[in-house]
Design a protein around this nucleic acid. Structure first.
Lengths: 203, 203, 203, 203
DNA sequence: GATGAATGAGCCTTCATTCAT
DNA sequence: CATGAATGAAGGCTCATTCAT
């Protein structure tokens, strides 16, 4: 459990993952070369193969780890949200945004580098992504059942919301005009208003 | 003397652009090879160079053409929208969605293959994209000025809306559960409700 | 025989030869592309083939023409030189240098681009070159027979002299420190002194 | 642990340099393909890149090494030549010819493939070449100062001499009519007679 | 004569990966 | 664990040349 000082066991592997994530984020999976990655962590490219199986496997593991963590943390965040759908939706939005803004690179790679996955890996990730979407769909379904949400199609609404929320991590710059809380507040308002049943519903 | 119909006027160039667009959409710019593209249009790869300057130039022209057309058509669509911001926003949403669902590939490429552009071309496109965003921001600003929209930050709201709207072209499948009109209707409702000033505003 | 005014018949062909010579001189035969040459004379590269047979043939004709002219003019120059070998050698040196300095590009190409010739053409040119060398060798032989020249091997001496004389066209810059006459004078002195029988011959 | 004799230490790199030199000598830099070179040393062309940086770099290193060695050995040869200019010039001619006849290929490449160098490399080599020329010029200057040489322009005389001497390596064939010593003897005589002050100086 | 389009061969170089050391 | 050297496939691109118009 305790790590003997000086034994820098998994250090290199970690460095590879971190540099790999960054380089894929910056250049794209196809455009990143393993030479580049190796140079970044001070190795020859041949040495990478002591730590990764293939380039494809590196991409897959990065995305897979992200998806697993995202699902776990989302479930943890939602588990404390009891009661009505509106409350749950607020928590979901809050968690999604804070997590995504904190893990900008992981999110970007996991969303826009799926094309680099071979078909087996692609299916695995898509399945996890569907799991994640189902969390939000469930909340929307609950809201509709409770008659507090007014949505014609909860699946499509969920996709639309996720597009907006995930998009935030693309353009959000820390230290910009808005704080993280501002962004959360703004999205919560827009999306909740877009869901909640209003008296003055417009055609 | 007379040019036989179908004769090889600009046909080949067009075929290259169409196949290029599709292949970039399917595989990504980096992953598409010019040999592949040439095969697709029945040429040797060397022959492509009678029609394109470089691979980079092909990508740029595809995106550039798209952006120019998008801007023109958006302005045309908005020019008939007079009066209040709500009306204009409805037209913007309607046009954005129908145009984007019709030009799925162009939109995808223009949004997610910018990384493939060299820095000069990148700047050109980003500038056009900003022009497009400014159309929506102007509408939101007008709505706020008219006190019909309740938005804390029109720039960020615009980005959020565009993320949602553009996202639609990613997952929308024609002939699916929802018609194009359904999708337009659904987004219009969500986004307008997220903008309009309500009596029962929630924190 | 007379060329009708306005009929610019061989103009293009001439332009191609001139530009070709210059480009081969500047970049080398292998490194010069026919596109480049075509551009230089305001044509598409396909159009060159109305004037030349192949790239190889262009090179050959340039060198061949040069060799033929060189031989003719040399013979003309020597025909007025009668009498002793020293006199003939002076004329040879004078003619070689003035001709070579005037036709710098032709000379350079004819001497250093032989590698670009295919073997048939190569043999033709080498044979002409040998003809030229034989003019000088004959003069040296005469000088030795007359006992005015002191040379152990007239062939090798001829090669050595030609190397020096031809080398001049490589580094000679008009408008430099030395005039053409200076260069001729200097070489004449060096080479004649290297030939003529001296009292004080050193081992 | 012990390195087996002949094991693949620097052997491959050396083989590449040797084959590269020979192929450039035979076909010219532009005309030599790396595939050819690779085949010559029994490799795939990709494998060359474990030993050379680029084709350009191979050319540069070949020429650069040659120039450095030439300068060093020339200085070594001249360092034992003390006393008058005639003695030094004899040594210079002797060394230049024997070295150049021994390294025919290097000399040829270093003199006639400069056009293949990019401008940065070109400047470096030209500078070294000027260093070499300056050795000879210094000797001629000394001779003129000593009043044993009669030269109107030592720079131009040096160029002329070097053209003759270097030219020798172009046409000299070992096992031909003349031995190396014959060639040295012949050139020494011609060039010295062309320098030395004579009683019977001709106009 | 000139052209645009096509071709097939070939260019230098980079790539992910393997393997003996 | 790390390396240098090797590989085969593939990359974008240029070339000289041809041919119908």
């Amino acid at each position: 459990m305790t790590r003997t000082a000086g034994s820098h066991g998994p250090t290199t592997s970690l460095a590879i993952q971190e540099a790999g994530l960054r380089l894929i984020y910056e250049h794209g999976y196809e455009a990143m070369s393993l030479r580049q990655l190796a140079a970044e962590v001070g190795l020859q490219s041949a040495s990478l193969y002591n730590h990764i199986k293939t380039k494809q496997d590196l991409l897959f593991k990065l995305i897979h780890n992200h998806m697993i963590t995202l699902l776990e943390q989302t479930d943890a965040a939602l588990s404390v949200a009891t009661g009505n759908a509106e409350h749950k939706l607020r928590r979901f939005i809050h968690h999604h945004l804070t997590y995504h803004m904190a893990k900008k690179q992981e999110v970007f790679v996991a969303n826009f580098e799926l094309r680099g996955l071979d078909s087996r890996n692609y299916k695995t990730i898509i399945s996890l992504r569907r799991d994640y979407e189902s969390r939000l769909i469930a909340i929307l379904d609950q809201g509709v059942a409770e008659r507090s949400f007014d949505l014609t199609d909860t699946h499509v609404s969920a996709y639309a919301m996720l597009a907006m929320l995930t998009g935030a991590c693309t353009w959000y710059k820390p230290h910009g005009r808005l704080s993280e809380e501002d962004v959360v507040e703004l999205h919560t308002r827009m999306l909740l208003d877009g869901c909640l049943r209003h008296m003055d519903r417009n055609s």
